[in-house]
Amino acid sequence: MSQLKTKHLLGIKNLDREDIELIFQTAANFKEVINRPIKKVPSLRDVTVANVFFENSTRTKLSFELAEKRLSADVINFSASGSSVKKGETLLDTVNNILAMKVDMVVMRHSSPGAPHFLAKHIDANIINAGDGTHEHPTQALLDSFSIQETCGQVEGKKVVIVGDILHSRVALSNIFALQTLGAEVMVCGPATLLPKHIRELGVKVETDIKKALEWCDVANILRIQLERQQMKYFPSLREYSNYFGVNKQLLDSLKKEITIMHPGPINRGVEITSDVADSDHSIILQQVENGVAIRMAVLYLLAGVT
């Protein structure tokens, strides 16, 4: 018998290795559940979950909603567009109003880093961070590491490079924490303008030559160029980015080894990754999506069980 040491999933930074391994073990059981003819278990039948999305999302929102429904939870969805947020309601008021309707768990995405941490201090419900600005995206990092463990046998000792827009990426930061906690070596690679200044202090290697980075790694996690977060030009053109940092088949063929390709989605085909790589046998992009549901079921289940 074991349970998580935390009541909320705010970031990977708050988890230790034991917690992550418990989530993985539970997720493996849920992966079996979602491959059954009837993919539903009654565990959370008396739990109501609110998905509160102040920022756009397709994959994460669908994945959470599916995970909640497969656990038999009651689900309500809220998105900021078309809501009273537009009328000037504060975050705390919005969430307190939702909680007044007797909600037990809140899954929240917000454009401000720290928004879920703020909420956790003020309300009783379990909070799951589904992405807070450029800070953390813990469930994505968990499903990424879980997919690496599934494909490579283990995460410990593996070399993982995260390629692309590290500066604006919450996926990158959460991935760095998760991979390091599990004992992997991490490198970040991208244009110097998109690498945070003091990133080395997190204990990661830094590389600006994509070929060298790919030669070094076992797994490459290729991030999307987040044009919506870039207020200024960090590189001259998408075409130039794709020339210098895009991962294509020619580049992979020139390596002396085979590596696993990951991408958190949504893919900008032809920018950070070409179609022939994204759809190749080395790519586990769709496996990541499948694992996303299992990981989120595990997180919801384990947090609901914390007493």
Partner: peptide, 22 residues
């Protein structure tokens, strides 16, 4: 494995660790 179908989830002190269903 019956863990996810138990009627005492959230009613006992600690959740039970699930085992494999095969």
């Amino acid at each position: 494995d019956t863990t996810f179908h138990r009627d005492d989830f959230r009613r006992r002190d600690e959740p039970i660790t699930p085992s494999q269903t095969k």
